[in-house]
């Protein structure tokens, strides 16, 4: 990578950074979580602003997946507070339902519904949760399928698609719910190498629209391109947090350095 390239990227980053508003979308304070007696998340503090793009990385078992799964309450944290878009995640089921409609999530294994066609996968949420008329839901679904460049697959079933296509469908499915925040849990780790790019392209395009994103990934090139901040987690702690340039070029913590040397 030449210096001019880097310069360009940094400029791009600054331009994007300007799109970040001061509105806080996600606010984690002193979040702790245990699986039985195993302490997965330790006093996590994290503030994500609207339009901010954050990449979380770290060795396996560091708690990074658990962290983003807590944000839409797929996992329940035990202490501390999580506020998403002004709504506190607590025992109130209505709040949880509401947050889930506001937060889209993309999984490592896609988790598409195999008994439904691609179109039905996309319209399920809008019809049954957003209570949208069928025709409108279809229109929106087709619009997003075009954005992820597979409108011709609408009537197929998930099992008939390649991994990359399935993951793009999964992204479109989340977008159909019109979320304010998108969470990505290792979206490319289950994909064959030749399919990773098509998914990352879609994600980059999404990032360009100013979506608030938290991405757990090991794709460091992707992180450098789009991230406003990179967070490194290890053993349930946020060990280091920096803008990408600083993170990759001057890692401060010993463990970060070790991790980067292994992965790059």
């Amino acid at each position: 990578m030449t210096d001019t390239d880097k310069q360009e990227k940094q400029n791009a980053g600054e331009q994007l950074a300007s799109a970040i508003s001061s509105e806080v979308m996600i606010d984690l304070k002193q979040v702790n979580k245990w699986y039985g007696s195993f302490h997965v998340l330790k006093d996590i503090d994290l503030i994500v602003h609207k339009g901010e793009r954050i990449v979380v990385c770290g060795p396996s078992g560091s708690g990074k997946s658990t962290l983003i799964r807590c944000i839409n309450h797929l996992e329940e944290h035990q202490t501390g507070s999580i506020v998403v878009d002004g709504i506190t995640l607590d025992k109130n089921l209505k709040n949880i339902d509401h947050i889930r409609t506001e937060v889209g999530m993309v999984f490592q294994n896609f988790n598409l519904f195999p008994h439904l066609s691609i179109l039905e996968n996309l319209t399920l949420g809008p019809i049954w949760v957003r209570k949208m008329p069928k025709a409108d839901a279809h229109a929106i679904a087709m619009e997003y399928l075009e954005r992820v460049k597979i409108p011709e697959q609408a009537d197929k079933f998930p099992g008939q698609l390649s991994g990359g296509q399935q993951q793009r469908v999964a992204i479109a499915r989340s977008l159909c719910m019109d979320p304010k925040i998108m969470l990505f849990d290792e979206p490319t780790s289950a994909l064959d190498p030749e399919m990773i790019k098509e998914v990352l392209d879609v994600m980059v395009e999404l990032a360009d629209t100013g979506m608030t994103m938290i991405v757990v990934t090991h794709e460091m090139g992707f992180a450098e391109t789009i991230a406003d901040r990179v967070i490194f987690m290890d053993q349930g702690d946020i060990v280091e947090e920096n803008e990408p340039n600083g993170f990759f070029n001057h890692p401060e913590h010993e463990r970060t350095r070790l991790f980067l040397s292994q992965i790059l």
């Binding site: 506020v83 002004g86 709504i87 506190t88 607590d90 025992k91 109130n92 089921l93 209505k94 709040n95 949880i96 509401h98 409609t101 929106i140 997003y144 954005r147 977008l175 019109d178 979320p179 304010k180 998108m182 395009e205 999404l206 360009d208 629209t209 100013g210 979506m211």
Partner: peptide
């Protein structure tokens, strides 16, 4: 652009207070 077709009506006010009907424990 992607994701900007959201209607502004579903901005919901913070609901931190105890909600009897929708509380998980109560239910």
């Amino acid at each position: 652009a992607l994701g900007d077709s959201r209607s502004k009506t579903d901005q919901v006010k913070p609901k931190d207070q105890f909600d009897l009907l929708h509380d998980e424990r109560v239910r």
